[in-house]
Structure formats: C-alpha cells, structure tokens
Design a protein around this nucleic acid. Structure first.
Lengths: 210, 210
DNA sequence: AACTAAATTTGTCGTACATCAAATATCGCC
DNA sequence: GGCGATATTTGATGTACGACAAATTTAGTT
C-alpha cells in the first residue's frame, strides 16, 4: 500500500471571481457536450467554485473522511480507488472536464469509502459539497447535468462489469485502450491492471504477446 | 440459450382507476422507505399505471426492442440479463416493490441491451416510458425518488464489482446470501452463479463444502 | 548528467475455477 | 399424484491467471 504525501491547496478567497474569466474552459466544454446549460446557470456554478492545485500523488478525497468538496478537473488526471486488505483497487480515471467526488459524501452524506488521488499535477475547481447539493436541488438545468453525469457513470460501470464477466484479460485490455486511449497513454500500467482486475505482471505479459 | 414463451398482458383500460384503490401496496411501501412523497404526487403516479400480469418465464423487456414500458413489481421476482455470445449473464434481481426497466430506453431513448424476465408469475403495474420521463421531469418529488433508486442501483453495482475483484467465489456467495436472503431462497442456482460470475457446477461444489 | 527510486519485464510454479459429460434429484403442471 | 422436463450434483481434466521474486528499463530529482 502506498503512503500519501499530503497537501491540499484551496485558494482562500472564494468570492474573488476575477480569476474565473475565461476559466473552467475544459469543464464547460465537457458540460456543453452533455446538455444545454444557460449562461445564468453557468454563472451560478461559477459563483461557487475556487481554483485549486494538487501536486502529483496528492490526495483529493480520503477514505473515512468527508472532504467537503467536489472537484472539476481542468488539467491533469485522477484515479479513484478502494483499499481492501491493503490492496488498492482502481475503480475509475478522470481527465480534463470531469467531476470527481465521493459518491458516499455527495449522495449519502457519509464519509467516503474511496480515495481519489492525482496521477499528474492537477488544476481543478473546488466546490463545497453543500453548494453542489444545493445547486442540484434548486436549479433544474444543473440537476439534469448532474443526472446525466451519474447515468453515464452507471453505464460505464455496467459495461465494465459485463466485460469482466465475458472477455478474457487480453481483450479487456484491448477494449480499454480503444475506449480510453488518452488514459491508456497517460497512466501507468499497474493502475490499468488494477482497473481491469488483473495483476501487473499478467498485463505486462499480455502486452508482450503483441 | 433459452427460448422465451412470450405473452404480455396489459389491461386495456388505462383510465379505469377503480382497481387502484388499495393497490400498489408493495410499491408504495418501498417508495416510502426511500423518501417522502406527498399523496398528490402518488396520485399523479397512480393515474399513469395499469395493472398487468406476467406468467413465469415470460419476458418483460427484450434486447433490441423498445418495450415502451417500465414496471413496478407488486408480486413475484424478475431477473435482468444480457445475452453475450449465446450466454446469459444475470445482472440483477428485482422483487416486490422494485421498479424494472431498460436503462437504455428510459435514460437514452434507445432499444434495450438487456432482457428482463419473470422468474415467478409476476403481478406488476406498467407505466409508459414517456409518462415516467414526463413525471420525473415535472414533479420534483418523483424526480428525487427516481434519483434515489438510481443511486442505490449504482451503489449495488459498485459494491458487487468490488466483491468480484476481492473475494473468492465462496465468500461472494456467502455475501450474496447475507445481503439478499429473499432472492437466495427464491431463485435457482444457475442464475445466482451467473450473477456471481461463476459457473453452476462451481457454485454447487461451493455449497457442498458446507 | 548522474544517481536513485519506481515501473516494467521476465521467470517459475501453484491453484481456483472452467469445461465437458453423465448421474441423480426436484419441481412444474396436467 | 404422477410424469416429464428441468435443476442440481458429482466426476475427470485443462488452463488462465495469481503469487512471489529477480532482472532490467524508465523516469523523477538535484
């Protein structure tokens, strides 16, 4: 089990929106791919976020804790994982434009069961979980956006589950590379192996075969 | 691959609500466990449903088709499954009080990728997918109820995925029996084996060990 | 650029579970 | 209540992948 260097930097002045002009570009680009959101809703969202930075290997969300924040990834890549009996199990990767948060915290108001860590230096926008919940409950456009994100996550998980049960390891890896070429290129092998449910040596051998 | 005897009976008179008095008991009981829904919202829902019956082994939702309906299970049990290369993979069981539908149809307006079949004779209430979508988009209470159902499904899947990656087959079976004793008792072994990602002979041997 | 730590490859061996097949038990239905 | 179909058990054999460990390559830090 790795040990985590720990610092979280959240810019102090939540109300200084000057830095937001022309910001959240990746996040907003991704949002517009998913659904229509009016400028006023976007502004509501922008009013709640603070820019922040996470060095490589730092932890955004920790097991057993309520971090209090969700994060929109503007630059960099993160992984979510469980630690079970000292073994890390990667459950997802998130890149530019994605939202990462603890489902336990946001949906169930409980401490997170997962970790989220930065695999590269991450530029992000933090939003307080309370603010996110409030926006989702009050603003229909943002609620729909949240729902679509969640539905897509469910679908990814559903399909990955299907693949786990039907495809041998090599084909699952090929499928992963096809679906997430970005992630495949930027992330080290051990994390992908863990995501696919195989060991690092096995994945290495699979790659050697071709 | 099994072949399906097929008849779907939906009572013709959608507007005859007399049969609904004291009806949907199991469904409404389950709903109240999850969240608060006012009588007027419940009535909105009741106004859209029709009682229907599915014999054992009949199919509620078929792959490649838009069934046009979601179903509230009042009595009986269903399974959802994929057919991949002629092999059935069970992804969930639904009992009294549950809602079953094709995610592809309701969320993505596409033909279903899954089958849903009755494992026992099923008494259900059918709602047109269009009506369900409309209710969810217009009624905040019902929308929240839908969201909670979806979140719980996500969580179940997330955890089952975790178990698949960390526990050996025998412990996964034990965990399944602990979490779903009802289902465990009512459903035949092959479906449970398929849900757990092991073969029927293997599950039979696991049980013989204790 | 060099030094160190981390990631990946490669090797050997063990095992949990799959596959195929046949025998027995159970259950749905008339 | 009994018959026929279906579900479960049991057996023999194979294999994909895991576990552990050492060698080699790659990459991060000064």
């Amino acid at each position: 089990m790795s040990c985590f260097p720990r610092y979280i930097l959240i810019s102090s002045s939540r109300r200084d929106l000057s830095c937001l002009e022309g910001c959240m570009e990746q996040v907003l680009r991704k949002m517009r791919e998913l659904c229509d959101v009016s400028d006023s809703s976007v502004n509501e969202l922008l009013g709640c976020v603070s820019r922040c930075h996470f060095p490589r290997r730092s932890v955004l969300v920790r097991e057993g804790v309520r971090s209090g924040y969700a994060y929109f990834i503007e630059r960099g890549i993160t992984r979510s994982f469980w630690v079970v009996d000292g073994v890390e199990i990667t459950t997802s990767f998130s890149t530019e434009g994605a939202v990462v948060f603890s489902m336990d915290e946001v949906y169930y108001e409980q401490p997170s069961e997962e970790y989220i860590e930065a695999l590269e230096p991450v530029e992000a926008y933090a939003i307080a979980v309370d603010d996110l919940r409030r926006l989702w409950s009050q603003n229909l456009e943002l609620a729909n956006w949240g729902r679509i994100i969640h539905q897509n996550e469910y679908r990814r998980l559903h399909r990955s589950h299907k693949e786990r049960l039907t495809l041998p390891a090599g084909e699952r890896y090929a499928e992963f590379c096809r679906q997430f070429p970005e992630v495949c290129a930027r992330v080290q092998l051990g994390y992908i192996a863990s995501y696919l449910g195989i060991t690092l040596p096995t994945l290495s051998r699979i790659r050697a075969q071709k």
